[in-house]
Design a protein around this nucleic acid. Structure first.
Lengths: 228, 228
DNA sequence: TTCGCAAGTTTGTTGCAACAAAATTGCGAC
DNA sequence: GTCGCAATTTTGTTGCAACAAACTTGCGAA
């Protein structure tokens, strides 16, 4: 059991225990620590995080209002189970928003940025080689958001992050496909080239492709688990 | 002081007091009851809404995590004061998202929908004639969301709603321009025609225009209050 | 064996009091 | 009169206990 009181007091700029609990839950969600359908109870979260019920409740409430958790009954919130409809809609929104962010980021492309992205891509590949799926997903997120943040549009980045939060848990369902296909590599390569040339349209296209490729896999996994 | 306990118990599908408080605050925000910069304190909200501190705190937390309220200090949340940068960014996002929603809604256009929109437009005009600015804004929101909801994309509608929540309070700053210019009328007329013909591109253009027109006014108001 | 109801258990909600930190006020010295 | 420090007030945070609603379990009757 980790002690969030220390994290809140010293570490990552979390002012309150509720804040620390929220951040911790958010990271766990993105890292796929909780699977779709998992039931979140105030007391269980409080136990897991070593805090009392109030901060745990705060975290759950915030996550729910962002759509990272959903109501499954009058008194139960769960990690969302995304159906094909949801996946399709979220993908459409992601293309609109992440396409926008990448296009706006293109003019800020530089040698340094491309180098950093290349480094991150190296970490993705290494994690894939090591079979560490969670690490690969994490670095994949870093790759995307490093580009999105270049545009200097904080509201947009926050909205995109909340989208990733919703899709995150489902990403874990497509284990071995992701590792085998390495679908991101080509698209990421294209993205880096587009960024080097500051070509907004090309950068957008690369990211849209990446999102669509991911969607195909996700849809596959959704169908598989729907049959089960 | 209104009694939310009754609202939660009987009325608009609010399961808990915290939920009812959240909805009430949301509506007040969109209706412009609170001005930008207004400081939200737990105890004040609890007093206003006639509930204890816990549901009030819940509501403030949820609103904050959605961006409808923002942190202004270590221990203070306020109604956001949007600068020109924020306004520009939010407008860009709105065009991407509301443009998408309207385009996807176009194929569902029908005689009935256009009739209803025409009715809503009538209410906007009537409110404007009566000088009732709040009513006009409210019906304006109805007009937009009636179209957006036609597409059947609930995640998208929720995200757009959270954008309106951020801009809502600032809308009140542009009183008398809105009433005088009646900027929405032409664009809404175009939208209804496009919807009748199920022309996605035209519908998107009409809404994009509407958003941009609103942005011009908002920017004007932001500059005015920045000078003050 | 199966169905149904009742008792017990789990779980979210709410109000509140104690605590800590920040802001404000007021008093006194210079 | 002004500046600075200390006391007071305001305010967010946290933990907890009481309550209510939903769910689960198990026993008994058909």
């Amino acid at each position: 059991m980790l002690d969030l009181k220390i994290a809140a007091g010293t570490g990552g700029q979390a002012a309150s225990l509720g804040d620390a609990a929220y951040r911790e839950m958010k990271e766990r969600l993105i890292r796929g620590k909780y699977r779709p359908g998992y039931k979140m109870t105030v007391r269980a979260v409080a136990e897991d995080l070593g805090v009392s019920s109030t901060p745990a409740r705060d975290a759950i409430n915030r996550l729910t209002s962002e759509g990272a958790l959903v109501y499954a009954g009058p008194k139960t919130v769960i990690v969302p189970v995304l159906g094909e409809q949801d996946l399709k809609e979220l993908t459409t929104i992601r293309i609109a928003l992440e396409g926008l962010a990448s296009e706006k980021a293109a003019p800020f492309g530089s040698e340094q940025h491309v180098e950093l992205l290349d480094e991150i891509q190296g970490r993705i590949n290494a994690a894939l080689d090591a079979g560490n799926y969670g690490e690969a997903l994490w670095h994949n997120k870093e790759f995307h958001f490093h580009v999105y943040e270049m545009a200097g549009l904080p509201h947009l980045v926050a909205m995109i992050e909340s989208l990733w939060l919703r899709v995150g848990p489902s990403l874990y369902n497509l284990y071995p496909e992701f590792a085998q296909e390495r679908y991101g590599v080509r698209n990421h390569q294209m993205a880096m080239e587009a960024l080097a040339e500051r070509d907004g349209a090309a950068l957008r296209a690369a990211f849209e492709n990446d999102i669509r490729d991911g969607y195909r896999l996700l849809r596959l996994a959704a169908r598989r688990s729907a049959r089960a």
